[in-house]
């Protein structure tokens, strides 16, 4: 799994995807930071992460997840993976953790705003870290959904659009609250770790990862 993880993580930075994801995140994060500071005259790191998760992840996650399996399938490199002695679970987890690590790197960039604030005031570190943890969990859940979509199509654009729809529609319409990730990111921004939110995000993550495993297993007999 480690070899797949390393190769996948490297691939994000050998292609523009890693840089584009970091750029978009920093743009949205900065914009919300500026709006909060200049219009409200106050800062709230929790609120900053909440709004970035709500609007930024809709764009960042499809970019990260669209290539996970679609690209392999289109280029035929899927054959190299699936005829190796590695199990499908290993392959999926390797790819999933590499994408999650990219989000960790993205989050690490957000800490520079914390450092900037430290020059002017004393922002509390604990709640900020909890907000970041929640952000990471929401992002990982969204990645699992994107990974599932990527496993069912070989067209990266379709994978990205469907992932966007899957993340955006439940939040926009309020329908299917179970699929609305933002419902499970209410207490984290306030600096609280809620067991119910952690469990629901983990359940979402596990559900879509299992779906991906099932799809990949099934493709062996269908394709």
């Amino acid at each position: 799994m480690l070899s797949i993880y390393k190769k996948e993580l490297k691939s994000y930075f050998l292609s523009p995807i890693g840089y584009v994801a970091i750029g978009i995140f920093l743009f949205i994060f900065s914009l919300i930071f500026l709006l909060a500071i200049f219009y409200n005259g106050a800062y709230d790191m929790g609120n900053l992460y909440y709004n970035t998760a709500r609007f930024g992840l809709l764009i960042i996650i499809p970019i990260i997840s669209m290539r996970m399996f679609s690209e392999e399938r289109k280029n035929g490199t899927e054959q190299l993976l699936l005829t190796s002695p590695r199990s499908i679970t290993e392959i999926i987890l390797g790819k999933f953790l590499a994408a999650a690590t990219l989000v960790v790197i993205i989050l690490a960039f957000s800490l520079m705003y914390y450092v900037i604030l430290c020059f002017f005031t004393k922002p509390s570190l604990g709640p900020t870290l909890i907000s970041m943890l929640g952000f990471l969990l929401v992002a990982m859940a969204a990645i699992s959904a994107g990974m599932f979509i990527s496993s069912i199509t070989e067209n990266q654009v379709i994978a990205a659009v469907l992932t966007f729809v899957l993340l955006f529609i439940p939040d926009l319409t309020g329908l299917i609250p179970m699929l609305n990730l933002m419902e499970s990111y209410m207490k984290f921004p306030a600096g609280l770790v809620s067991l119910s939110e952690v469990v629901s995000l983990l359940a979402y993550m596990i559900m879509f990862t299992l779906f991906t495993i099932i799809i990949m297993q099934r493709r062996k007999s269908v394709k």
Binding site: K7, S11, L14, N75, G76, T77, T83
Partner: peptide
């Protein structure tokens, strides 16, 4: 699978490596 080395049709490779 450990016993097999497979070269698929169309030479699929990771171009970025």
């Amino acid at each position: 699978k450990k016993q097999i080395g497979y070269m698929p049709e169309g030479v699929p490779l990771y171009m970025e490596l």
